[in-house]
Design a protein around this nucleic acid. Sequence first.
DNA 1: AGTTGTCAAGCTAGT
DNA 2: ACTAGCTTGACAACT
Length: 293
Amino acid sequence: MKIGYPCINRTLDCTCSGTFRLDSYSDARLIHKIEQNLACLQRILEFNVERGILFFRISSDLIPFASHDVNQLDWKEYFADGLVGIGNFVKQGDIRISMHPDQFIVLNSKREDVYRRSVRELEYHGDVLDSMGLDGTAKVQLHVGGVYGEKERSKDRFVERYLKLEPGIRERLVIENDDRSYTVRDCLDIHGRTGVPVLFDYFHHTLNHGGEELRDILEEVTGTWKKKDGVPMWDYSSQMPGERKGRHGEHLGIHDFREFLKKTKGFDFDLMLEIKDKEKSALAALDLLSRES
DNA sequence: AGTTGTCAAGCTAGT
DNA sequence: ACTAGCTTGACAACT
């Protein structure tokens, strides 16, 4: 099992998701920002490897305005060496990588313009991982999207559009259950019609599920990942105590985490900790695992 | 140096 | 009707 955290390292004094305002766009500014982001990504990965953190989610802002019309720079070509360099470091260090397009990417949107932009943005995510030379185990995780008051039709629209994606991105895409709309069961249904692997989000599942037995549904989820997809990825987060339901916690709750490990014993997965304090929780989780095994 | 309004983009549910 | 929340606040103009 690999443990990871998303996008940001709070210990280091750099970010790999730096961006700027559209109003102040220039190619020079873009190039400068990408240089900073790539340099920081390298530092974060080194920090992680030194401490045994072998799973990391790369921010969608690595290349600012990547799929926006304003950006006409051939960044894949311009930064080819830097991207390959990071990819080599990832492979050497046996690091697992994921990306998670943000909430504006809605493949099943009823709006054609949103659908079109979403495809472009998905292709961008695939391009980053391709440019690093990573294999199909590096995944792009996405929620199913909007419901629009008619879930079955909205699922159908997801399936149709998924099947029309370029093979390159289709091989990286995985779908994730969310906290209010699409359950793991919905995702498994879509898997049955497309073959897309299902990324299990434990926290979302506790908030939004159909009452099925956890271990039964985990067996099904595990079966959606083929050898070429790698070990199943799962997301885990803690509830912010006292805050509204679904709000993410500041720290890893050790008691709850131990319970989670007990309930899921025997399953093989790589775990992304979606917790505000990032690498600190990842280190706490690794520490717990090493002491209990 | 610190504060604050705003940022490319969608959708849902709670108030 | 408005807004918080989402995988991650942070940029940039102001005082």
